[in-house]
């Protein structure tokens, strides 16, 4: 029996053409649907059941949230551009757009921090009422997802300086991208269900 240290990456036999990491990510996202489904479901169940204020209509700020939603949507747009750039081996563009994604994500997080601190100033804390409890938990969990995404993007960006990247590595950016877009679509749902519908 001969054993050789691995010098080149081995190719495995696979019964489908679906890359493992990408398949994994999709399954994770399917699972994440249930995570956010539970959080949003809890929010809906407790909607209008807070015993004392501040109530959603007192604190939610539609114009600001619209801007932050737009920022997050555009980060998604930059994400596909980055992937496209990497696939076409346009590394400078890829770096630019990846940085853009991380930057826009950070801007979104900045909006969220601003929003949270405003709410706290207006008397809405985690412990104040059911709205505070469910709202902060839901948007906070989403914020943590965004944070992880930003860190992921920055990691990819830094990696691209440490070692050369090419279109062969597109899969890993694509997987990160899937995650990023998912965070985006969750926000689309949150924006509608929590923010907009409240003011109908």
């Amino acid at each position: 029996m001969s054993q050789a240290a691995v010098e080149h990456a081995p190719e495995h036999y696979r019964s489908t053409s679906l890359p493992d990491p990408k398949l994994m990510m999709w399954i994770f996202l399917a699972s994440d649907c249930m995570f956010f489904g539970t959080l949003i479901g809890t929010y809906l169940v407790y909607k209008n059941r807070s015993l004392e204020g501040p109530f959603p209509v007192d604190v939610l700020d539609i114009p600001i949230t619209t801007v932050s939603s737009f920022v997050l949507l555009m980060s998604s747009f930059l994400m596909v551009l980055a992937l496209h750039a990497l696939r076409t081996d346009n590394i400078p563009r890829f770096r630019l757009w990846t940085f853009g994604v991380a930057f826009f994500g950070s801007v979104f997080l900045g909006f969220q921090v601003f929003e949270f601190s405003t709410f706290v100033k207006e008397g809405l804390t985690l412990q104040q009422n059911l709205f505070g409890t469910t709202f902060f938990t839901l948007t906070g969990t989403h914020g943590i997802h965004v944070t992880i995404g930003v860190l992921w993007m920055l990691s990819i960006l830094i990696t691209s300086y440490v070692r050369p990247m090419s279109s062969k590595d597109a899969l890993y950016l694509e997987v990160a991208g899937l995650y990023w877009h998912f965070v985006d679509i969750v926000w689309i749902v949150i924006f509608t269900v929590i923010y907009l519908v409240e003011f109908v």
Partner: peptide, 11 residues
């Protein structure tokens, strides 16, 4: 279809 896994980047 039968596919092959792309190489994982060696870094």
């Amino acid at each position: 279809a039968v596919g092959r896994q792309p190489a994982r980047p060696v870094s």
